[in-house]
């Protein structure tokens, strides 16, 4: 274990903008963790994510200071295709990250770019399709797929490159609640089974806080809070930085007693009943 993603006093300002998108940001993610990045629109979340896989500064020019380290490599001096082996990136809209006419060909895309041998690609593609339960879609055209299936195809296209870190930018915001839950559970499973480190941005905190190990809240380009989800969500002033904690957390904050927060309804009910029973 150790720090796999580390931001040290990191500032980035896109060329032509008047103020930095992120400023003096320091935080780190341990290997094997699920870290949730939260904050209102425009707080700098996307900039942070794109600084992990090198889209910033390699694709977007701008003024930069401080340092971002990913799996021991300094992002600013590592080419994006090198980072592509370490960091899988899932974007919000799966439609715009599926390029090819069939599912399996699209999943193979990254490995072809890296110049792997055809037999190796075949094996890895089959593995990734199986892992995400979409082997039966291999020959299908992306335009025939549902939104949830498209998101799985895009995920397979990232995982096939065997990354250590998976970065997800609001992966469920266009999905309905059940499909969103499926994607989140899948990501949680990948984290447990493959030991994949996950960094994700998601507005629906009730969906992701139960599975997160760490939460980083950004406000006005800076880190506003960092800690375990229970710690962070327990703070005052979340609404002011544009976050809405899950309803169950809001309820607990209004109760007299309470040491530590339960992050889902079941956990809360169990604790509450035990607590009440204890006092009888």
């Amino acid at each position: 274990m150790g720090k796999i993603v580390e931001f040290l006093d990191y500032t980035f300002e896109y060329s032509g903008m008047e103020r930095p998108a992120v400023e003096g940001v320091s935080f780190s993610v341990e290997e094997g963790e699920v870290a949730v990045l939260a904050g209102a629109s425009g707080s700098g979340k996307s900039t942070i994510l794109r600084s992990i896989n090198g889209l910033i500064p390699h694709m977007y020019p701008g003024r930069r200071s401080g340092k971002v380290t990913v799996d021991g490599a300094d992002v600013s001096s590592t080419p994006t295709y090198e980072l592509a082996r370490k960091v899988g990136f899932l974007f919000q809209n799966p439609e715009n990250q599926i390029f090819m006419f069939t599912v399996e060909k699209d999943v193979a895309f990254g490995l072809e770019n890296l110049g792997y041998e055809p037999e190796v690609i075949r094996r890895k593609v089959d593995w990734a399709l199986g892992l995400l339960g979409i082997s039966d879609l291999a020959k299908r055209s992306p335009s025939e797929l549902s939104d949830g299936q498209k998101q799985r195809v895009a995920l397979a296209g990232s995982l096939v490159m065997d990354p250590k870190i998976l970065v997800l930018d609001e992966p469920t915001s266009l999905l309905d609640p059940r499909t969103a839950q499926d994607v989140v559970s899948l990501v949680s499973r990948l984290n447990k089974d493959l030991g994949l480190t996950v960094v994700l941005v998601e507005h629906r905190l009730e969906l992701v806080s139960p599975m997160a190990d760490r939460m980083v809240v950004l406000s006005g380009s800076r880190v506003w809070a960092e800690g375990s989800p229970a710690e962070v969500l327990g703070r005052e002033g979340l609404h002011e930085v544009g976050l809405s904690p899950p309803a169950i957390v809001e309820v607990q904050k209004r109760l007299p007693s309470g040491d530590g927060l339960a992050l889902d309804v079941d956990g809360f009910v169990r604790r509450f009943l035990a607590d009440v029973g204890h006092r009888v």
């Binding site: 309905d176 609640p177 059940r178 499909t179 899950p246 309803a247 309820v251 309804v265 009910v269």
Partner: peptide, 14 residues
């Protein structure tokens, strides 16, 4: 394809 809101889940549990 929907999920029940947390407050409703809570109501049901009690």
């Amino acid at each position: 394809g929907l999920r029940e809101p947390q407050l409703l889940q809570l109501s049901r549990r009690f």
